[in-house]
Design a binder for these strands. Structure first.
Lengths: 331, 331
DNA sequence: CTTTCAAATGAAATCGATTACAAAGACCTT
DNA sequence: AAGGTCTTTGTAATCGATTTCATTTGAAAG
């Protein structure tokens, strides 16, 4: 592994000159430039990134923490982040936490140890208190999931409003017995807001609530199917389901079909996120589409501002969304 | 941002001693240890990772390059890699290339610049020649996709054999007109082997081939549906489809259902990878399940051996697979 | 009372780059 | 010819850690 020093030696110049050639940072005569480039070529020299980063006190690296990449919904967000990052010569590092605090802390050390210049949380496990502390010391931003009582910046959508819109579709279609299906952590803001919208929509019309207390199991087709089965056994009067993701909607649909119901005639179902699942499912699922790419890029742009100027004030952004009407609710 | 020097100053010891306390690497009296820890606490000191890495000439970082995290099939592989990596105090960095060579090269600089100790390619865009060169200079491994004429290690499955098994299911069910549907790059080994199995299975029985030349579009539901539509219009005699992924199978199924065919009575369809798509689809899809976690962990274990001993010989591993029989082929 | 060895600590080199500063030469200008 | 500017290069400090080597101290052994 050749170093800059060996290049300098071979080219018979100082390391400073080699550095100048590499970075094109100052006057170098054509002759020496040639010699240096030859030496670089001959030695197959690759500058050591660590040396550079240490000296520059900047790594041009951004950490993205998320539950797990296997949620396809996250993919577009990441693309948005990457797009902006690459435009500014930043590289993006994606790390899976699997909702495990230890693992998250472990990866967060990259931030604390200055291995990355900033971090974006797509779904956080860290407590509000720790987030607040991080916000004070490092450039960070939250995407989709966030803490309302945390001063750190976030880029999300108004889940309450979107969910209320969804509930209105079911209510306007005349449904009076609407079930709520959710699996996964109930501590995240999106889950809370969706549930709040469900509850308040029904309470305003004095309609009954049907929901199972969220299990702490992960977003799953089978879990949703099981919840739907449980609810339908207990309350056969249910004719519609509001669920918090497309995958769950698919599970509910499966259960309804097994029971011989036809959709949307006998029962309606709604999903969330407009993932591929909503198209693959038969019938296709009515769902909420967020501009996730936009959320990712907006967050990254903010982070860049924050990195270059520590005094940048945190921003709080709610992006657009639209409801995609499909067969699962459309007669 | 406090440095080790400021800690030393505050604790009235040398930086060497602070380092000893942090790393527990040599004799330190209880008294000074206490003082150092107090200073660390008071300054809220976090050691700078770059300094450490530079000196140690090891970053404990592994780069994972893949097309894009939005292919859920990759998720289990990554989990396998992470599991082993974390056991050995390595961190994993995931980077999306989107099949873009420039982007891949860009990320590969992390390897060339010694920012990571090794790399795993889950789906590579780099040419065989470049891979061969990388193999000579850095610890690398390939997972799932690989180059047969490249000496670098790989961990995959025998796609030809698995695909032949699949074809036999369709052939044994009596089908004589079987279509092949594939979208995405045809340069990857899995696509080639699957296609080879399709062709040879039919040729052995002197049966006709039905396939569209693969478009370079990405793995898509709609593209698969369009291909099925095209093939069925041209060759109404087709009664079965062998497709290279679950998502594609879902697209084909959709087209068949639109045409009023019932599955599996009128037509059969097979997928690949056993992703969630194969369960969500109605009917559920017969598919091939790989032990992806195992492939990931095996690759990571090899990489660790290679890192600690450059002379480790490359390994070539074919993992287990099993066919999951579901409604799309089961009468 | 010397010798020996372990424990405890610090000074300084080192990892591989960037960059401030200094200095020397070339080329004009007046 | 003196002074100024621009080009070109090198020396050495610096980033923040680890680690080698040397030194000191104190206790145990002879």
């Amino acid at each position: 592994m050749p170093t800059i020093e060996q290049v300098a030696l071979l080219a018979k110049v100082s390391v400073a000159t080699v550095s100048r050639v590499i970075n094109n940072s100052a006057y170098v005569s054509d002759d020496t430039r040639q010699r240096v480039n030859d030496a670089i070529e001959r030695l197959n020299y690759q500058p050591n990134a660590l040396g550079k980063m240490l000296r520059k006190e900047s790594t041009q690296l951004i950490l993205v923490l998320l539950h797990s990449v296997d949620n396809p919904f996250f993919s577009k967000i990441i693309q948005g982040i990457e797009e902006v990052a690459h435009q500014h010569q930043y590289n993006v590092i994606i790390c899976n936490t699997y909702g495990d605090l230890d693992r998250e802390q472990h990866y967060l050390n990259m931030l604390k140890n200055h291995l990355v210049d900033g971090a974006i949380f797509i779904s956080n496990t860290t407590s509000v208190k720790d987030m607040e502390w991080l916000e004070k010391h490092y450039p960070i931003a939250q995407v989709v999931e966030y803490y309302h009582d945390c001063s750190s910046a976030y880029f999300s959508i108004d889940f309450y409003k979107a969910s209320t819109d969804m509930m209105n579709i079911l209510l306007d279609a005349g449904h009076k017995h609407i079930g709520f299906v959710h699996t996964g952590s109930s501590s995240i803001i999106s889950a809370q807001e969706k549930f709040r919208a469900y509850v308040e929509s029904l309470q305003q019309k004095q309609l009954p609530l049907y929901s199972v207390y969220p299990t702490e199991v992960l977003f799953g087709f089978s879990e949703a199917k099981a919840q739907a089965e449980y609810l339908l056994n207990k309350h056969p009067e249910i004719t519609a389901f509001f669920s918090t993701s497309d995958m769950l909607a698919a599970g509910i649909i499966d259960e309804l079909l097994v029971r011989g119901k036809s959709i949307p005639e006998d029962a309606m179902v709604t999903g969330f996120d407009n993932t591929d699942y909503s198209i693959i499912s038969t019938p296709m699922i009515t769902t909420v589409e967020l501009n996730s790419f936009d959320l990712g890029s907006k967050a990254m742009e903010y982070l860049l501002r924050k990195i270059s100027d520590k005094k940048t004030e945190p921003e709080y952004y709610f992006g657009d969304y639209r409801i995609v009407h499909r067969t699962s609710t459309k007669k």
